[in-house]
Write a protein that binds this DNA or RNA. Structure first.
Lengths: 148, 148
DNA sequence: ATATAGTCTATCTAAATAGTAGACTATTAT
DNA sequence: ATAATAGTCTACTATTTAGATAGACTATAT
């Protein structure tokens, strides 16, 4: 149950777009600020666009921006938009997988991991991009106070 | 955050050993009952042995068995024994990773995912193998009642 | 027109996953 | 002793996924 680079990049990307809400942000700027390989980011943004999380404008003064208000985008939507349902056990959502399972109906693991999935989903849903930015600003302020 | 085949096999293996607690169980029997490739299971059991979850006896009447009482083995131990810490974000446990992160101290994601990791850990720790078997037997009973 | 900036398709490499092969060692029963 | 049993160990292979890159193409503002 680990986030990989793509997940990491994805989170940083929407975070960056939320920080610059109102602007058209260039791929190259996100790439530089968030330390993401530009060409990789390019494709990542296309996925996010297809999922309706971000939108874009071509040409001069073009760039990417959030397709909805920060408060209407949560982390569950963001993560699932690029990697599908992240339930820890496949039978929680893949019907074909169940057929091969020796337990079928009386599988305890299905219950356990479906339960965990629900918990994680709830937590991720609770964090929208607006909240994320607020959390970040609060942390930044604390850091500032410490270094004085 | 998906469990892969190895995780799945691992869970089924300790489950099988818990079901047959008190016996020396042959690799081949676990493989057949749980539908796991024998040679793959062989190596999986060696990992579980190294981690102190299972123990074994060679020769005739030999086989594998749980190294501790079922109630003293929980799912967190089992899963982490074969794949290391399963924190969703690497910086929650890998110090080197943090150096590359553009946020360092004020990273909100670290907080979010460390929190989620704690939740999941708690849930997995709460389920020991004895509990697992009880849950399974209860489900089996329900299934039996339904089919009558 | 032309520069800008996103779009699309294809390719490449490295690592992880899943599975296989075969020789070796310890133990028990005869 | 020795043969059969059953785990141990090392190495290898195939497939898939992850991560990254290249370059031609399209839309738009000035």
């Amino acid at each position: 149950m680990k986030l990989n680079y793509e997940d990491d990049y994805t989170l940083k990307t929407v975070f960056d777009l939320a920080l610059h809400y109102g602007e058209n942000v260039h791929i190259a700027d996100i790439a530089r600020r968030q330390d993401i390989p530009g060409k990789f980011l390019e494709q990542l943004l296309l996925k996010l666009k297809k999922a309706g999380i971000v939108a874009s404008k071509k040409g001069p003064n073009g760039g990417y921006y959030l397709a909805k208000k920060p408060k209407d985008i949560n982390l569950k939507q963001v993560l699932e938009s690029i990697k599908g349902p992240f339930a820890p056990i496949e039978c929680a959502w893949n019907k074909d997988y169940i057929k091969k399972c020796p337990y079928f109906v009386d599988c305890v693991f299905k219950d356990i991991f479906t339960d965990i999935y629900k918990d994680v989903s709830k937590k991720l849903k609770a964090i929208d991009l607006n909240k994320l930015i607020m959390m970040h600003k609060k942390k930044q302020k604390l850091k500032g106070l410490k270094s004085e």
